[in-house]
Amino acid sequence: MKDPVVAGAGVAASIAAPAERGRVSRLTRWLESEKLLATVLLVPGMAILLIFIAYPFVMALWYSLTSIRVGDPGEFVGIANFAKAWNDTVFQLAFKNTVFYTFWATVFKLALGMWLALLLNRSFRFKRIIRASMLLPFIIPTVLSAFAWRWMFDPTFSVMNWLLYHSGVITDRLPFLSDGDWALWCAVLVNTWRGMPFFAITLLAGLQTISPDLHEAAALDGANAWHRFWHVTWPLLLPVTLVVVVFSVIQTFSDFQLIYVLTGGGPANSTHLIATYAYQVGVASGLLGEGAALSLFMFPVLFGVVWFQLRFMKRMEGH
């Protein structure tokens, strides 16, 4: 994919035509300076990030301080939008839901992902194909798989209710998506289903860097499986685990697609996350300023979590 360009660069850089040699070599000499080379290398990425993230971010900050609506630029209103959001019971609920959803989904993804990684790290038949198929939930688009789950949870046609009912486990169907608490747990379940493979594969990658000798040695010392995991595997996996958890927390906290498809925030707003509520207010109702303020509430929380985790990682690297 990238080879022609990159190879072209190499060729161009080293075998310059004699006539232009002077100019090119000046350029290459420039690029010998670490500072200049770094600048050149960083420019393309930074340019994209500046134009398409930093600038819109600043604009969004401005929006959040104005009464902008769709088709109407509005005027400066100070922190009125934030104050309104703060006192908004739906937002309070959405915030609580987001924390709940992120926390439990991450806990389950980590626990199950770790377990799965340990299982996949053994040798068994059809290992390749099973490993590959375990990744499926992670790679297919969330909206599509969320639809499959919505169909399985459908109040009238749910296959799970069918199965439980006809096997005599239940006499009335389970209210998967029609009860607020159930629906939120269902969203946690689907998110876990989707994110677990990423945890598993990344942790598996980490596991493969651990030498089996360590385990053998521990086993010889009489450590049982749990002790071997806790004292040998876990400490060595901790750095990887932290990285995955950071990424997962970011993704889960700002999740939108899954809820949008699965429940649309209902029943009775009980499964709104910050992102879906911000979308409903900002986009569906056209209150762009308020929507921006709602979304902005996510930022400090994410920043705090990640900062804390990065700090922790740094400290570990130090040891």
Binding site: V5, V6, G8, A9, A12, A13, A16, A17, E20, R23, V24, L27, V40, L41, V43, P44, A47, I48
Partner: peptide, 14 residues
């Protein structure tokens, strides 16, 4: 050549 070079160094993105 210079153009090619520039392009390769990432101005390609631009």
């Amino acid at each position: 050549k210079r153009r090619k070079f520039l392009k390769a160094t990432g101005a390609g993105i631009a």
